[in-house]
């Protein structure tokens, strides 16, 4: 049974340039919860993020992604955005000459299908900037152009706050940030989540446990290895993983023959 209030990934197999990266991912993220997806480099975390948003380079071989009772794999990226999906990019792209505030106004109207006068939108935007302790002049800068690494990530979080998504995927938002910046980003996510009053689900993709320490509440931690979700447990799993390391976990999983599922892709 598909849950209507959750993002449900079923037996997802995805190839990039002919090479299979995701080998049957099963994962459910309900609205009103924050989940983490951890895993070593090359396990397929970012491939999953890009596939969920519909990047054309990722070829779906098999499986479904159900959201609001529909398999969204058939939809274009903008159609997914309009259904409330949001991806915070690991490497946000620079768009020269396009002011952030102007872009967000266009995106907000596209996303919600409502026309909002510039003046009113700008007032809302300034409120969101304040919520995230960001300077209002940020809105006048060109989208990601000349931004520092930290500014790019905060800009992603700002967009998330403004576009009011219902399901957020954060792709290694913490990578490349120092510990202060990680805390700032985590606090911002907590605030946006609290403001959404249960109308938003979040999937935080990360290599490290450190961002998860600041995320409140964290409902569940999933571990991905070699293109599959191999472990799923409560928030304490993140700490255990930090202690034992991915190598140790991988070895143990190999020892437990049969634990790793065959790449069948079906339930």
């Amino acid at each position: 049974m598909a849950q209507t209030d959750a993002l449900e990934i079923r037996g997802l197999r995805v190839a990039v340039d002919g090479k299979e990266i995701l080998k049957g991912v099963d994962l459910v993220v309900p609205k009103g919860e924050i989940h983490a997806l951890m895993g070593p480099n090359g396990s397929g975390k970012s491939t999953l993020a890009q596939t969920l948003m519909g990047h054309p380079r990722y070829e779906v071989l098999e499986g479904q992604v159900l959201w609001k009772g529909e398999n969204i794999l058939e939809l274009s990226p903008d159609e997914r955005a309009k259904k409330g999906l949001f991806l915070a990019f690991q490497y946000p792209v620079e768009i020269p000459g396009v002011a952030l505030g102007n872009f967000l106004h266009i995106a907000y109207q596209a996303r919600t299908g409502q026309e909002v006068p510039v003046g009113r939108f700008h007032r809302q935007l300034v409120q969101k900037l304040k919520l995230l302790d960001m300077d209002p002049s940020f809105a006048n800068r060109n989208l990601n152009e000349g931004f520092s690494g930290g500014e790019k990530k905060r800009c992603e979080i700002l967009q998330m706050a403004v576009l009011e998504p219902e399901m957020v995927v954060m792709d290694e938002t913490d990578s490349g940030l120092d510990i202060d910046a990680v805390r700032i980003v985590a606090n911002a996510v907590n605030r946006i989540f609290a403001e959404s009053q249960g109308k938003m689900g979040v999937l935080i993709i990360t290599h490290y446990q450190r961002i998860l320490r600041y995320i409140q509440p964290l409902h569940r931690v999933n571990v991905m290895m070699d293109g599959r979700v191999v472990l799923s447990d409560g928030p304490e799993l993140a700490e255990r993983l930090e202690e034992m390391g991915y190598d140790f976990l991988e070895k143990r999983l190999h020892e437990q023959a049969g634990f790793v599922k065959e790449p069948s892709g079906s339930d």
């Binding site: 946000p92 995106a107 996303r111």
Partner: peptide, 15 residues
């Protein structure tokens, strides 16, 4: 670039 288009369309803009 494909990446610019993907970034902007992922925010709800048509191509």
């Amino acid at each position: 670039g494909e990446e610019q288009l993907f970034y902007l369309t992922s925010r709800g803009l048509s191509e």
